[in-house]
């Protein structure tokens, strides 16, 4: 029964891992999935958020609380980012994808090096009481440092889903991606709506950063391994569906965890990308995207 135990453990770890990945991908589900802005800097912003959380944690603040506190300034940083992006491209009649991808690529490099300059390349971590302990259910053991951040995800997913499908502003965010002109005819300023959405995505990045830094220490370049993974999740989910993002993230998390347990950990980084390539080839609208 060792194989079964191993499989159970792997699936449980995968689900937990997947919900943390979902948190990382939610901001991108808004910027890339809904607004179609290829924000490759998102993981770098997440890491910047993690560092911000570490700073407050030194004063004894709980990392999740610190993440919530930081989400307000990060929202405004997001507004500024969008303003910079819009001034650079959209006023000029829309830059092409190459240019906006390059811009965000450049921004992510600047963020990484800024972190190196400010904090060095050493690993940084937070102090919480529950590190090192695990929840045991029969033969399945899940460390609390993974379980606690994973439990944030359902809450955030639910609130975000509620916001995007039940409030006027949330509906406007989804409408603006669909038809900008119709939105402005309806009396809503599309640029203001997109800026607001980008702000929310950036605020979500710092919460994801808080979750990530609880699971383990980060260094300035820790975002890089997540770039492909979060894009894989958003594409697999089907561009901008919020519950779909959670489901896709869990699929990828479980797949990675199974590969780690039954093949070798060194194969794990390739899993998300193999799934991404397969999705693009077989079902480019994603699992939950439907026909557009």
């Amino acid at each position: 029964m060792i194989v079964l135990d191993l499989a159970l453990n792997a699936v449980a770890t995968g689900i937990v891992l997947g919900s943390i990945y979902a948190l990382l991908a939610l901001g991108l589900a808004i910027t890339f999935g809904i607004l179609h802005i290829p924000n490759v800097a998102h993981p770098a912003i997440v890491i910047a958020g993690a560092y911000a959380v570490v700073v407050l944690n030194r004063f004894g603040l709980d990392p999740i609380l610190a993440g919530l506190l930081w989400s307000i300034p990060f929202y405004f940083i997001g507004l500024a980012f969008y303003e910079f992006y819009a001034r650079s491209f959209e006023s000029r009649g829309g830059g092409n994808t190459l240019q906006s991808l390059t811009l965000f690529f450049g921004i992510s490099l600047v963020i990484e090096i800024a972190l190196v300059v400010a904090y060095g390349t050493d690993l940084r971590s937070v102090r919480v009481g529950y590190v090192g302990e695990s929840l045991r259910l029969g033969t399945v053991a899940i460390p609390y440092r993974f379980l606690v951040p994973a439990l944030i995800t359902p809450v955030v997913v639910f609130l975000l889903w509620l916001y995007l499908s039940k409030t006027n502003t949330g509906l406007a965010i989804r409408a603006v991606a669909h038809d900008e002109r119709a939105v402005s005819v309806a009396g809503v300023n599309p640029t203001a709506i997109k800026r607001h959405a980008f702000g929310i995505a950036t605020a979500l990045a710092v919460i994801a950063g808080a979750a990530l830094v609880i699971t383990g220490p980060v260094d300035p370049f820790a975002g890089r391994i997540h770039i492909g993974r979060v894009f894989a999740i958003v594409v697999l989910a089907g561009m901008g569906t919020i519950p779909g993002t959670l489901a896709a993230a869990i699929i990828i998390g479980v797949a990675e965890s199974l590969v780690m347990s039954f093949a070798s950990p060194s194969w794990a980084p390739g899993v998300a990308f193999a799934i991404l390539l397969a999705t693009l080839a077989l079902r480019p609208t994603g699992l939950f995207g439907g026909v557009r």
């Binding site: 994808t97 991808l101 492909g228």
Partner: peptide, 15 residues
């Protein structure tokens, strides 16, 4: 779309 191509190329490096 071209965006997917760009992202797939990121993936290719890691694979």
């Amino acid at each position: 779309q071209g965006v997917y191509f760009a992202i797939a190329t990121v993936a290719l490096v890691i694979v």
